[in-house]
Amino acid sequence: MAAADVTAPKIQPYRTNLNVCVMGLIIFLVSELALFGAFFMYYANLRLARGVAWPGDFDIPANNTSINTLILVVSSFTCEFALLSLDKSGKGGRVFGWLFVTFALGAVFLGLQVHEYMTVGFTPQTTSVGAIFFCLTGLHGLHVFIGLLLLGLGMVRAVRGRWSPDNHVGLLGISVYWHFVDIVWVVLFTVVYCLPSS
């Protein structure tokens, strides 16, 4: 392997086009889904196979959380608006705005979630019900947190005018991720909060 090989590659090695990166992200999200799947499998085993009454002696605040769900669903739209408001001028003002709204909604969601943890009256150590409740919502919360970091990143780059109609793969990735986080929450909310009795 002579060093001369390095200087003139005829094929560009690091091809990055939109398809490849977003495809990678989507495949990665499939495996994220499977990670949630592992915890959902435990949850299903607990309730279906073992017939454990949910939520047992605890009170899981479905009503408050439905407001929270609404917040997250709305944030999915605002995130989409950020993508739609890309324009040729290269100024990121509106993109920044929508991203900021999304960020704020996500932060409120996370805040309310933490508040719920403090007030729910049981801990992960209490019983298996407590453990899986905290794990499912906590894993999701972690994803929201990562999503917030990504949104922050999107805002930084928006301020610098780095997003444009032909260069927005990163932005697309952020929104795909955010939608994923949102969809998982809707499923989680339905299964964990809305079907609690019996």
Partner: peptide, 23 residues
Amino acid sequence: VAATPFVAGAMFMAMFDREMGTH
């Protein structure tokens, strides 16, 4: 992609049982 996260999930739960006292 579809299967490996399950073992991670199992390992996490088992680890929480050991190190955080979950059940």
